[in-house]
Amino acid sequence: MNKKTIKFFDKIQNIDRRYIYIVVALAIIFPLLIPFNSPTYVTKPTEDIYKKIDSFSGDKSKAVLLSFTHDASTMPELFPMEVSVLRHCFERDIKVFTICWIPAAAPLVDYAINTAKEDFDVQSGIDYCNFGYKPYALRLPIMLGMGDDIAKAVETDSQGRKIENLEIMQDIKNYDDMNLVVDFAASGSAIQWITYARAKFGANIAAGVTAVMVADNYPYLQTGQLMGMFRGLKGAAEYEKLVDVFASYKSEDHPHGRPFSKEIIDQTRVAITGDAVPYKYKKARIGMNAQSVAHIMMIFFILIGNIGYFITRKKVGGKHV
């Protein structure tokens, strides 16, 4: 091996981390600017949430609660999940409630609802209801209270209306009816739902978390305490595809979407270039492109780093550095 190569790898070994930063930045920016089609493989944790929500289709005595425990910082990952779930519920005529626990999440809830409801004829208080911001200190009492009576525990919605008077509350009393809670957070906040809402009242709990926090929730997913999980941006992308392929699928045979099928989802590709899918419903998939390129970039870096390591180690006589 010539000296030049060795010198190059030597340099690579002690590369200034800012070079890595710039490569990562480029690997992320370009795919975001120029979307391209790449396959999205749907995994079980996401699929389970989809199937659970789908099973409530048109059932007026069932509802989904979306709990927001994050602020704007983690929006890129969590927001597409929230929008897709809302879109799914609106598409399938499923009652959906939202609640948030930090003040900074309140505008996010509105933003998510407004984004999703643009395409549907849905009304607050009838098809969905935003319970609004409830202080974190009240989280436990509300969580437990909803096991008995949602209207009593939550009292008012974000517009200050008494919940018990709303039409959406007909047939919805507690976790028996509001059977699924999806918690969106950049922390381990789903665990609280598991300990209180699930253990005490048997509510189904699912989590939507940022990729960094996925590993934290794995044990609960494996034991089934979490019935499903959105695993970061990838989970969001998967759900976007699921909604596209089933709930939003329109044809003569299926004017109101079609039922879930593992076989169909595996075979279907949804093009994200072009205008077939509105941008807001494919954000996560475009983001996944960036993530893919960045991952490949990283793997490449790691490999280069290791090759360099071996070469330089050879040079210093096989000593461990």
Binding site: Y21, V24, A72, T74, P76, A104, M298, I302
Partner: peptide, 20 residues
């Protein structure tokens, strides 16, 4: 919103360099 998102996004860079 953009400032928080920026801080969080730094994570990607740091993870890259930490992994390297």
């Amino acid at each position: 919103m953009p400032m928080s998102a920026t801080m969080f996004a730094l994570l990607a860079f740091y993870i890259a360099s930490a992994a390297y």
